[in-house]
Amino acid sequence: MISALQNPYLVKLYGFCVEGDHLLLIYEYLENNSLARALFEEHQIKLDWSTRQKICVGIARGLAYLHEESRLKFVHRDIKATNVLLDTNLDPKISDFGLAKLDEEDNTHISTRIAGT
C-alpha cells in the first residue's frame, strides 16, 4: 500500500525484500538527512525563515495528500522532525510509515489511543 502513495512530499518506496522474519524496505536516498539533524545537530544546515516556511508547507501538503487527496487515506501518527527527510533542495519528504493507519471511511481521524513517540 505504501508504494501506491505517489506525492512529491512523501519518500518513494522503490522496493522491498522479505527473507524469513526479516523485512528490508528500499527508499529513495535523500542527501540532507532529517529535519531533526538540520535543526538540532552541531554541524547543522543553516535554515533561513523562507526555507523553514517552505518545509512546513511541504509537510502540510504531504499530510493533506495522505488524509484527503490520495485514493487510500492514511493517518501517519508519528510526525516529528526525525521522520521528515530533506532532499538536495531542502524540500521535505515524510517518511517512516511504521505507525501509519489506513483510514476507514466511517471512522474519524481523531484518536485518543497513544501511538508513536
Rank of each mutant, 00 (worst) to 15 (best):
residue 90 L to Q: 04
residue 85 L to Q: 00
residue 113 R to Q: 12
residue 11 V to F: 01
residue 113 R to W: 10
residue 26 I to L: 15
residue 15 G to H: 06
residue 27 Y to I: 05
residue 72 L to N: 11
residue 4 A to C: 07
residue 35 L to C: 00
residue 112 T to C: 11
residue 37 R to Y: 13
residue 95 S to Y: 00
residue 91 D to E: 15
residue 76 H to L: 14
residue 20 G to N: 12
residue 6 Q to V: 02
residue 105 E to D: 13
residue 7 N to W: 02
residue 31 E to C: 12
residue 59 I to G: 05
residue 61 R to Y: 07
residue 83 N to Y: 07
residue 28 E to H: 10
residue 16 F to H: 08
residue 56 C to E: 06
residue 100 A to E: 09
residue 34 S to M: 05
residue 114 I to V: 15
residue 65 Y to H: 15
residue 9 Y to L: 06
residue 36 A to H: 06
residue 71 R to W: 08
residue 58 G to S: 13
residue 114 I to C: 11
residue 109 H to A: 12
residue 106 D to A: 11
residue 89 N to V: 09
residue 8 P to Q: 02
residue 103 D to S: 15
residue 46 K to I: 10
residue 116 G to M: 11
residue 22 H to W: 08
residue 29 Y to M: 07
residue 75 V to P: 05
residue 98 G to L: 04
residue 23 L to K: 10
residue 52 R to Q: 14
residue 71 R to Y: 09
residue 20 G to L: 12
residue 117 T to V: 14
residue 107 N to S: 12
residue 49 W to M: 12
residue 116 G to K: 08
residue 26 I to N: 10
residue 98 G to Y: 02
residue 103 D to Y: 12
residue 37 R to F: 11
residue 53 Q to E: 11
residue 115 A to R: 13
residue 117 T to I: 12
residue 85 L to P: 00
residue 76 H to N: 10
residue 59 I to Y: 04
residue 24 L to C: 13
residue 40 F to P: 01
residue 16 F to I: 06
residue 76 H to M: 09
residue 19 E to D: 10
residue 57 V to T: 12
residue 106 D to H: 13
residue 116 G to R: 09
residue 4 A to W: 05
residue 54 K to N: 13
residue 6 Q to S: 02
residue 83 N to H: 07
residue 92 P to Q: 01
residue 17 C to T: 09
residue 13 L to S: 01
residue 8 P to E: 03
residue 40 F to S: 04
residue 41 E to N: 07
residue 45 I to S: 07
residue 33 N to C: 09
residue 31 E to H: 14
residue 38 A to R: 00
residue 87 D to N: 08
